[in-house]
Write a protein that binds this DNA or RNA. Structure first.
Ligand SMILES: [Mn+2]
Ligand SMILES: [Mn+2]
Ligand SMILES: [Zn+2]
Ligand SMILES: [Zn+2]
Lengths: 143, 143
DNA sequence: TTGTAAATGAGAATCACTTGCAATTATAGC
DNA sequence: GCTATAATTGCAAGTGATTCTCATTTACAA
């Protein structure tokens, strides 16, 4: 078995390594998608049939709190999770096909930084996401 | 009675002007705050005691769809509403005192515009909001 | 004044997520 | 390895926000 970075971090922080946690971590590390709790649950059950949805929620809560994964709001009513990326990025979700386009806009980071300094704010969370139609879906409609 | 712009717009689009809609609109126009459905409901009941929360939700849904008001996610689990502002702006919510700071960052609009052109996207919604601690609250803690 | 479709109120339903609790289980110490 | 113990889990019930169903009311065109 290869020592996954997430497992190592969990262990180092004093958390126990259970089969269900291991499986959720594996799913998160393998799929470089933006999985929601339900998909995470479905994929996890394939490797740990008795895992519960509650445990999935509890696991992502721990990982999030440790800064190992990030939760995004992608225009749907539920959250999506992703291992924390080397380079921070934001998301555009196509309303037509569901595709998620990741992008980076350094200007946004700069704008936030300037605002924080000017107003004396300490920024804790940044929520930035777009929805609309991708090039393909626009073609399939007028324009 | 002064003919409120929201009422006029509603009427023009073929919607009926009911007492409850009139009241919700008034509350939205009077308070230049970011009200959530519950506050909107409480304020509306003072002028229309029998109004229901469902009607508040139905009313803001109609107004939103008509582009007369905007719904924001300010870090809480529920939405907040505001009449659509002349100049678009974003929000920072203080985790300590709840204060909402409005700000404008033209750079963000530019970044979005550039992204849309580069990737051929049609942007429909932009979600951009920050949370953290305001200057006052930072003083009241370390740093 | 009336007919009719739109809107409302009350409460049930839904959805994503959280929690209580008894049963498991990881793991530190022997 | 065996044990004690506290962390973790599964399940089911609980939440909070929002939506929906449906019988009743009401706006408003004619
Ligand atoms: Mn999803
Ligand atoms: Mn609120
Ligand atoms: Zn698309
Ligand atoms: Zn504050």
């Amino acid at each position: 078995m290869k020592p996954s970075p997430l497992i190592t971090a969990l262990q180092a922080s004093g958390h126990r390594i259970t089969r269900q946690r291991r499986v959720v971590l594996e799913v998160l590390e393998e799929s470089q998608e933006h999985l929601d709790a339900e998909s995470l649950y479905q994929k996890a059950r394939q490797r740990a049939p008795r895992i519960s949805l509650a445990t999935v929620y509890r696991t992502v809560a721990v990982l999030k709190q440790m800064g190992l994964i990030a939760e995004y709001s992608l225009g749907e009513e539920h959250g999506h999770f992703e291992t924390v990326p080397e380079t921070p990025h934001y998301h555009f979700t196509c309303i037509g096909c569901g595709q998620v386009v990741e992008f980076d806009t350094p200007q946004v980071a700069v704008a936030i930084q300037e605002l924080a300094e000017r107003e004396g704010l300490e920024i804790c969370t940044v929520q930035f996401s777009l929805t609309g139609y991708c090039a393909c879906c626009r073609a399939g409609r007028g324009r």
